[in-house]
Write a protein that binds this DNA or RNA. Structure first.
Lengths: 209, 209, 209, 209
DNA sequence: TTTTAACCGAGACGGTACGTCTTGTCTTATA
DNA sequence: TATAAGACAAGACGTACCGTCTCGGTTAAAA
């Protein structure tokens, strides 16, 4: 007794072509210049084929994001064993990306898409689509006793990524040291060891207290 | 030889009608259902009158935001003298607002507008358009010695507001205690006094002090 | 008589289902709301099965027409022995049909189909698909010496049916007496007997000639 | 006290461009290959400008027809003083037009348009859009006593034009003499004078007069 | 007081993109 | 192996807005 439906199955070639076309146009022109007609044309596909499988433009973009097509070189968090350095490197890379016009458009496009689509929003919440997310890196740090075992991993991640998004929306230029200051601000009070703690303010502000 | 221009001066009535219509439609339908033609019709104004003074839809919205028309009941940060409690109250209010459909749409609409318009983005960066911003409250706390005098006020504010925006984009339900956990996570390590520090983290952050 | 022969046994059933579905939808919704997908769905048949046997929508309709499925109650010309009365009855019936919305749509749908398909056009030329056509009735009249033996039977038929089509296209309301006047106008000068000739104009114009 | 409305007035240039583009494409490609998008493109006009003033494709065609743009060389009925000859010439011209592919398409396109639009149908009813219609020519003949004063002018016209339409739909080749036979068939019994009556029928219609 | 230029409302304009619909072909699982 | 179910590319449909331009009418400062 089968429940198999009749008829042809979804064309994988069409799906791939649509997602690739979407990724290409998204990166090239930004989210709001992205059109269904443009995607269909670029993919060599009928518009209806897109609408058959995705309800909206933002859903296609979400699928792209999920498939990792929007960040060819993933913005992963490195893991050198030093959490603070790793986070600074990671945020620094992101801020550097945001300095370039293309990167800024990409980020704001992503936020715009998240605005329209819950999946994109969720994905963004998971650290810019990276599968090895901030949370993962923080938990690794806990395992290595770099962080207190009860450190609010989730909240620290949200604060860092949220700050990045907020800065992207503000279009403020990222002064050098922003990444460092942000990491230190958020990480303060959660380090388990003195060595990895920032000497930042404390050392200078109250050197002899 | 004068440089006075001829003709009537800008109609203040038209400007007010436009901004009020924009605020009304923005709150009622959200940013992406907001249209120039709709604003013109609602305000009883010609389209050209809008385009004469604002370059785009997002600019009108930015002006609304600046004029405080989008948040009739300002989301201000209270100042009871207890920073932690105040921040938790403030964030709690915002998360509560986000729980309601209208509030969620409003917030996401605001982010969408920020996506298109730098002014809106900047305004968002300044703590959700509130004139008494997070930064202000934090500096007040420094003056009262609730916070270390060198606490990275700017970064703490960014982290908190950013986290709110990120959660709004993620559409995740705000579990009770989110505000508290977030404030504690970010504030950890910056308190100057024992009393205002969260019990959980504080005990372990400086176990031997 | 057995059904043991091999081959596509279902074929004939599908064909019948297609024609019936076509006839049904044609009558219900008119020619231009008739779609291949609608026919396939109604008939419980794959679209390709239709395309296998008919090149186009109009061809299916032509086949329906040929099979007499579009006029369940055929509009036949009666034969009471009095040609004039019979033609007036026949035309009167048609005009009455045209007065009803459904009948009007049906007729215009038929003309629309004829526009696209030569077979439908030919069928229309043969007196609205009726197998006992006008021409047949006229020839019967000749045999009974109601009409002159050389009366241009073909042309009289074309004139009558053509006038009906023209009136259907014009959407003019059929005033009472239209059928009578039309028959008399076209039949004038072809009657072999005085008795069957219309007294209409002749009686008044040349009453004693 | 005026009732003049404000705002820009309808652009005559756009209207003319649309009608001309429609006429051109109609003649070139036929009614069913005529598209709104094609008209807009050809006229250099936005689609909405067409939809603002005409509800449908067929309405634009009706307007073209009304404006005489579809028959550059009007198919007028000549008036040489001899009704029979004039009608035969006229019908002969039309049948000749129908022999050419372009002419056939034009005529069937017109019928298709009439199928969808009452105005086109009415226009067709008035003798193929000619302003000097059949009826006019027949009434002139009555004034010259070529026709009985009570001849059913309207019905004779309908019969002739209707026959033309029917033949166009049938796609039957127009054998030589069709025009003559048709005119004689319909005109029989309405002539007031012997001279203009066809020799064939006349002799037998009133053999004893 | 008259002129005159910028303002105003209204809305038509050329366009872009939308999401839906239909066509005719192609593909696959089922019977 | 023919069939139903249905996915596919193509493209027309009618709608919604865009941002610009044009129309008369209305101010209000400059002449």
């Amino acid at each position: 007794m089968s429940e198999h439906r009749q008829g042809p199955v979804r064309s994988e070639a069409a799906k791939i072509a649509i997602l690739q076309a979407t990724a290409h146009l998204f990166q090239a022109r930004g989210y709001d210049h992205l059109t269904m007609e443009g995607i269909a044309a670029e993919a060599g596909v009928g518009k209806q084929t897109i609408y058959r499988w995705w309800p909206s433009k933002s859903a296609v973009v979400a699928d792209c994001l999920l498939g990792g097509l929007l960040f060819p070189d993933r913005i992963n968090i490195p893991d050198t064993g030093n959490l603070r350095e790793d986070l600074i490197t990671w945020l620094g890379n992101i801020f550097e990306l945001l300095q370039q016009p293309a990167g800024e458009v990409l980020m704001r496009s992503l936020i715009a898409a998240a605005t329209e689509n819950a999946d994109v929003g969720l994905r963004l919440h998971e650290s810019l689509g990276s599968s090895s997310s901030v949370t993962g890196r923080l938990q690794a740090a806990i395992r290595l006793s770099e962080l207190h075992s009860v450190a609010p991993v989730e909240e620290i991640g949200e604060a860092l990524v949220g700050a990045v998004i907020l800065r992207a929306l503000s279009r403020l230029p990222a002064h050098p040291g922003v990444a460092e200051r942000l990491v230190d601000a958020v990480l303060a009070g959660h380090s388990a060891t003195r060595a990895t703690m920032p000497p930042v303010g404390a050392a200078r502000v109250l050197p002899h207290s």
